[in-house]
Design a protein around this nucleic acid. Structure first.
Lengths: 198, 198
DNA sequence: AATCCCACTGACTGACCAGTCAATCAGTAT
DNA sequence: ATACTGATTGACTGGTCAGTCAGTGGGATT
């Protein structure tokens, strides 16, 4: 059915869509913008995707599944809980580091878009919380983490903080220096595990 | 110029807009939906507001200014830092408690809408972070909070967590029991100040 | 060389909707 | 009464854009 060439064209359209969504926003851009960016005829977009929304859909699911896999892998490793959280923070921060446009689109247009599009993916998004929640819960059972704080609540705090940081970076529009990425990874874990009390 | 009756009509339209935006979302709803909800002719909306966007604008600014004032007031009080954070958490949680539709609109359509509308209000939004950041910074100077964590970073963690919790409530669409509101207030402060380490 | 199969093209359509505006109405002043 | 003023109405316009579709071209298959 789908020749290698066709698979590649599909990819070209997806990559173009990332750039266009990141630049103009999903609602603001036209399908013709995506076609132009991909250097492809308008109609071809509809040859590969049934709708504009499906393109965003595809981009989100592709990446989110990779993240869920990364969380699941981390869960299985035999390292201290703090290291597990660090691994996840590291994965998400690096996702932004190496493909800021894609992460921008996912966060701005899906994860944070509770109104329109995000609603469709609440369950997928929740699976990430649940994975993190299980790591926290496990650490509580072992006695590494306090049991006073609900594990799912802690997961929200952890993921929420990361998303907040990425959102700041996205807002700023500035390139982020390499050491900032590494510094933030540590600060996230320190904040969530250590708290503010001195 | 504006008679009391006119001021009231304006209010009727704003309140209707809150309900419509909360129900259908800003981008999805039509101006005629707002007019219908307000029981008012289509054109009258444009008599009171120059554009659809200005309505959302007005709703956000009205409420956000109240919140900035609440933060500023809290800053001035002479209570332990933890109590200050609790007061702010309490204010925001209660804002949702007593007007969930308005908070839903502000969070979903402005605060979290980094792409389109939010961009206009980044500075206003940042002022909230800065207020919280000053409280944390002050507590660090006094020695109540550790200095390892950047004050603005902590403010992001704090506000981000609250917004994350509200977003969960919004997503769920369920009514929240009274004790849940109170419980969450404590849990937010405990999480941010105490951290997870046991 | 005839046929088939898709990738591919881009002009076109149909629906939608923000914002306009000319007309009407109601209250108040003169 | 008359004139004036601002509130109110809703039909209409102009522009936008997602999605359609009839047709083209080129590589494989027979």
């Amino acid at each position: 059915m789908s020749t290698p060439a066709a698979v590649e064209k599909r990819r070209v359209i997806l990559d173009a869509a990332v750039r266009v969504f990141a630049r103009q926003g999903f609602h603001t851009c036209r399908v013709s913008d995506i076609a132009d960016e991909a250097g492809v005829a308008y109609g071809l977009v509809y040859h590969y995707f049934p709708s504009k929304e499906t393109i965003l859909d595809t981009l989100f699911l592709e990446r989110w599944d990779v993240m869920l896999a990364a969380i699941a892998d981390t869960e299985k490793t035999e390292v201290p809980p703090r290291e597990k959280l660090r691994a996840i923070a590291s994965f998400i921060v690096d996702s932004y580091r190496y493909d800021p446009d894609l992460m921008k689109v996912i966060i701005v247009e899906v994860t944070r878009a509770a109104n329109t599009f995000g609603r469709t993916h609440v369950e997928k998004i929740m699976q990430a919380y649940e994975g993190i929640g299980r790591i926290v819960g496990q650490a509580q059972k072992v006695g590494t983490f306090r049991t006073e704080i609900d594990a799912m609540f802690a997961a929200q705090a952890f993921y929420g903080l990361i998303e907040q940081v990425l959102t700041q970076w996205i807002f700023s529009g500035l390139p982020i220096p390499a050491e900032e990425f590494e510094h933030v990874k540590s600060e996230i874990v320190d904040m969530i595990c250590g708290g503010l009390d001195g």
